[in-house]
Amino acid sequence: MESKIAELKAAAADSIKAAADLKELDNLRVKFLGKKGEVTNLLRGMSQLSAEERPKIGKIVNEARADIENLIAAKNSELKAKALQNKLASEKIDVTLAGRKFQRGHLHPLTLTLNRIKEIFIQMGYSIEEGPEVETDYYNFEALNLPKNHPARDTQDSFYITEEILLRTQTSPVQARTMQKHKDNAPIRMISPGRVYRRDDFDSSHSPAFTQVEGLVIDKGITFGSLIGTLDFFCKQMFGESTKIRLRPSFFPFVEPGVEVDVSCPICHGNGGGCKVCHDSGWLEILGAGEVHPKVLEMSGYDSSKVSGFAWGCGVERIAMIKYGIDDLRYFFENDMRFLNQF
């Protein structure tokens, strides 16, 4: 009996070892351990044994059964692992193929630039003010200390609708309108972004329409130093912490003193080497600014002996051209998909 059990065990071990797949293994389980399987048969034959032998043989048979069960379980794991491996091998793909593309959209680079400018000034407590693009001569020029036939009007050749109505040449009329909305010398911190128009041909550096943003601060104790500090902060935020600004005296009738503002070239940092952006000068002119002219304050109802202010203005295209390294103004308005898709 004992030898029979040993034989059976050996036979089971051999055939389990040789099993090629899970199905075959399952057949072996039925064959050896099933209800009509060979181990069960052996147990059935126990009845013919003596009472002394029975517990002893019973124990051996149970041990054999456990051994076979273990062998099957081990083989089962092995075969399952192998099957998974085969499955994975057969599922291999070319991971170098491009991923599924999304239909992505883009904001215009002028909007992106303006959004950044707005962020910078909103965090300093500025409001965003807007006004009409078709303006009166009064708001566009006269309220800004530019009476009719002022030579400085020459630099802003205008599109007229009537003698008194024109396409605004600057967003400064929004400043005058905002000032007139305030009373009692109330403080103002505002920027006014928007489209402006000048009678210029359309070429790589001129456009009959472009985007401007202007800033105005009015309060007690606003000095030229406040203007410098503000512009320095803005330029550092816009072009990087190492950016410097330089002020050159200039003339704009709505400010006194008036300056033009250069930023250190954020491309070559003044190191030259054939810089296409600053032409190795190390500086880029980006802004006009100054202390608000007392006449401008007075015309819009502020008392220039009690409050003072500063104002500045710049072209958003100019900032975007520097920031993105764009060298042709026309790109902004042609709306070529190959251009728009880059931002």
Partner: peptide, 10 residues
């Protein structure tokens, strides 16, 4: 260079 004093809501 300084910055305007005080704060305002923007």
């Amino acid at each position: 260079a300084t910055l305007p004093k005080g704060s305002q809501q923007g």
